[in-house]
Design a protein around this nucleic acid. Sequence first.
DNA 1: GGGCATTCTGGGAGCGCTCCCAGAAGTTTC
DNA 2: GAAACTTCTGGGAGCGCTCCCAGAATGCCC
Lengths: 325, 325
Amino acid sequence: MTRRPGIDEVARLAGVSKSTVSRVLNGAPHVSARAREAVRRAVMQLDYTPNHAARSLAGHRAHAIALVVSEPSGRVLTDPFFAGVMRGVHAELAGHRTQLVLMMSQPGDVGSYLTSGHVDGALVISLHGHDPLLSLLHDNGLPVVAGGRPLAGGPVPYVDSDNFTGAVEATQHLISLGCERIATIAGPADMAVGLDRLSGWRRAMSGRRTDLVVHADFTPEGGAFAMRSLLAREPELDAVFVAADIMALGALQVLHAAGRRVPDDVAVVGFDDSVPAVPPLTTVRQDVEKFGRMLTWRLLAEIEGEEGLPPSVLLPTSLVLRTSA
Amino acid sequence: MTRRPGIDEVARLAGVSKSTVSRVLNGAPHVSARAREAVRRAVMQLDYTPNHAARSLAGHRAHAIALVVSEPSGRVLTDPFFAGVMRGVHAELAGHRTQLVLMMSQPGDVGSYLTSGHVDGALVISLHGHDPLLSLLHDNGLPVVAGGRPLAGGPVPYVDSDNFTGAVEATQHLISLGCERIATIAGPADMAVGLDRLSGWRRAMSGRRTDLVVHADFTPEGGAFAMRSLLAREPELDAVFVAADIMALGALQVLHAAGRRVPDDVAVVGFDDSVPAVPPLTTVRQDVEKFGRMLTWRLLAEIEGEEGLPPSVLLPTSLVLRTSA
DNA sequence: GGGCATTCTGGGAGCGCTCCCAGAAGTTTC
DNA sequence: GAAACTTCTGGGAGCGCTCCCAGAATGCCC
C-alpha cells in the first residue's frame, strides 16, 4: 500500500495552503473560484481521499451515524421490514460522506459507546417496552430518532407508519366481505407497532366480538403457534387479521394443514406487504424504504441543528387487495 | 455533553504515565500487575472510553471492517440469506472492539474509499460476474474475504456453502421419488452460487433430460416468471429444483394458480431453508449465520496476519425433508 | 559485587486533519 | 483618496491517542 497523499500535498500541488484545501473540501464559504478549481484538480490528480480518523479527531464530528437494532436475539435482521429500512437509510445517506455503523444492542452495553463520540447520532429501531436507551442517549445530548413510536413517550422524535389506520382498513375490509368471526394475530404487546395495529382492529370491530386475540412475536413460528391456538379456541372463525406478513406465512401453513381453504373458509389479511405467499396476501402496504429515508433525513437534520423540525412523522399505509381476502 | 475524560486523566488518577495506560488498554506486555490494576480501576471510576478517531489516527488501524454488498439495486438486503450472514458477522465481531461499516457498492465508487484506510479489511458478498473490486482491493493490500466463491478465481480467500453437493442431493431426492420430468430454476448465470447449484443438478441428472433450465435472479418475481416459462415449455413436468427458497415462493404461487398440487402433481425442492411456505418446503439447509461467522473470523485472522490460514472454506449443507417433495 | 539481560516506565514526537486568528486583497462609501 | 467594510488566504496550535526511545528497576549468572 503506497503512502496516501495528505492534505499538504494537495495544497502544494494546487498552490494554496492547507487551510484553503480544507475549506474547499468542506464546502466552506469565502474561497475564490480560482482556488476552488485548483484544489479540485489537485484532488483529482492525486486521487486524494481525506483521512477519516483525522477529520473526526480534529473536527469533533464522527461523520458516522449508528443504526441500533434493539433486539438481543438479532431476530429483526431476518425481517424483511428491517432490510427495507436499511435500504432506505443507505439511499438517504448517499452523498453525505457519512458512514453507517451497525450495532445490535444487548441492553446496557451500547449506551456508553454511542455517547462517547463515536457517532454523531443514532437511529434506534425495534424498541421494546420502556427501554431506557432512548432517554439515556437523549440526555447525553446525542441526536436520536426512533424508528417506530417509543412506548415510553418522551421527547425523542420518531418516524412511524400509520399502523392504526392501516389496521382499521384491513379489518373493515374483512367486515365488508361479510366475515362474522374475525380474529387477530397481534404483534408483541410491548411494542407500539403491536399495540397500534391491535387498537386499529379493536376500533374497526367495535360492536362485535373482540376476544379472538393472540399476541405473537413477528416470526413465522409465532404466527403459526398463534393460529393454532386461535383455531382451537374458535374452530368456526372465518377471518384473521395478521399484524405482519411474516407471521401470516406461519398462519397460512397452519390453516393449510388444518384443511381450511383461504380465502373461502378463512379470509386472511396481513400487514407490511413484505413477502409473497400462497395464496397471495391481501395486506396493508407500508413503504419501508421511505421509512428508512425519512428516519435518516430526520436524524441528519437534527445533527445539523435545523430549526422547526416536525417532532415526528407518520407515514401513510394502503390496503392492497390480492386473493387471501 | 460533559467533557469526556482523556487518557491523561486516567493516567493521573492511576498514578502512572499515558504510555502505561495505553499499554494496559491495548493488552501490551511488560506491564506490572499493580499498574495494570490501578489503570483498570481508574478507567472504571472515570467511565473512560478511548476516543476512536484518535486511536485510529495514531495507531494506523481503523478498528473497523466493511461489509460490502456488491449489488447496485440493494436487492440483497431483502434476502433472508443476507440477514443471516450479517447476524453471524455481528456475533463474531462481538468483543473485538471493531466496528462494522455497511457499504453498498455502486460499481467503481467503493474501491478508493476502502483502500484509503477507513477500514482494516473488507467482507465482500454477492459478487457478480468478474467484478474487479476484489482484485482492486487485494492489489492495494487490503485484507479481503469473499462471501461466495468469486467467479474470476484469483488469490482472494473465500467462504462458501457447498452448493454443488447440496444441489446434487436435492436433485437425487427428486429422482428417488420417481419424478420423470425434472426442471430447475437456476440462480443468476453470472454468480458462482447460481452456476454451482446448476452444476449439481446437471450432475445428478446425468443420463436424463437436462434442457428444462431457466435462470432467474433470486427474487420471488424472478422465480414466478421462471416457473411460468417452464410450465409453458413442458406442461407435463413433475418436479422442480429451485435454487433458492425465495424464488420457490414465487414458483409456488404460479403452480398454485395453475392448479398444480404440490407435491402431488409437481414436487418442489428449494435451497437455503430461509422461508416458510405453503406447503412447507423440502429444501437444502445451509447455516448462514455460521457462514457469516466464518467469513468474519477469516478476515480478522487475515488482518492479524496469522499464518497458515486455509485459502478458502466450504461449509456443508443438508437436505431437510418437509412436504413439498 | 559487577556485568548483563530482562522487565517495566515515562517523555515526547507525531498521526492528518480543522479551525481560530491575524493579515492581505478587493469593494464600497463619502 | 482614505476609511470602513467584506472577501479571501496562510500560519499554526491543537484534537487524543500510539509508539519509539531511552532510562530506571529488577533478576540472574559467574
